[in-house]
Amino acid sequence: MHRSDPNDVPLMTVHALKKHFPVGRQLFSKEPKAWLRAVDGVDLQIHRGRTLGLVGESGCGKSTLGRLLIRLLEPTSGAIKLDGEEISNVSARKLMGLRKRFQMVFQDPMGSLDPRMKIGESVAEPMYLNGIGNRREKVAEMLEAVSLSPEIANRFPHEFSGGQRQRICIARALTLEPDLIVADEPVAALDVSVQAQIVNLFQDIQQKMGLGYVFISHDLGVVRHIADDVAVMYLGKIVEQGSVKEVLDAPAHPYTRALVSAILPPRPTGVRFRPPVSGDLPSPINIPKGCRFASRCPMAKDLCREEEPVLRRVANGQHAACHFT
């Protein structure tokens, strides 16, 4: 954020966003047995032409947050503003118009194209849904934009490799010229040799079209490469955010430190690698009081188990939620 113009209105602002899922149903009661607090009070800003990397381990709520941003899920509470305009409670009709402005690219390029639809039909679908004409030309243009031949429009998804399908999904997301793309682990399912191609493609498109990205990933190496800003999630909350440099080079929160030091050095170091933390992610169903990371934190004190820390500024644009930073 320190690099963006201070007068610049953020593309999207998120405030106190929550999404709780009911878990199980009791026999004689309308109340569910428990609530899974997937996203539990998140504040974010997304800027045009910049990439926000959303990082965390599986089950931390990062995918749910991504789906909330593009209104694929209804938030339990909180505010989402697009260009300053509240969109978390707009009517279905208005939402349809808004959808042109934010699109999503999913993790599984094998599954997110309808196997019985031709490539051309899939790529044209967003335009069809929004009543836009001249679809054939736009499809060809978009396929070319992702370095695919326009002739593939008449073929079916099963004829393509994972990387090619992800290109097709990106083409589909671009047809409506959105302002924001939420990409949920877009390279996690791809071969290493193909991942780099897709990451490069994302960057090229951003330079050309100036859109904002939310790039959800568990892979800090990829995030460091593509993102400008990073938000680290743990059990439904953001524990640290700031620019890539600040957060990944000088992590302030012990969880971010653990994540960063869990990245395996890309080349042999001659020193035995040691795991930074022990234990697994606790269940997001019964979140303990106090700091959510306390059960695994090497520096947890009594205070941490009593009181939940809030995000505080630790450096220029860097914020962390820890009592001891």
């Binding site: 593009i70 694929l72 279905a92 939402l95 349809m96 959808r99 699109q103 999503m104 999913f106 993790q107 599984d108 599954g111 997110s112 194209l113 309808d114 196997p115 639809m117 679908e125 967003p126 849904l129 929004n130 999904c169 589909r172």
Partner: peptide, 19 residues
């Protein structure tokens, strides 16, 4: 996932069922 992808583009109800 392709149903979710369609919903992300604003498709709903009968359209998803039909297409």
């Amino acid at each position: 996932p392709f149903i979710e992808a369609a919903r992300a583009q604003g498709a709903a109800g009968w359209y998803i069922i039909r297409r």
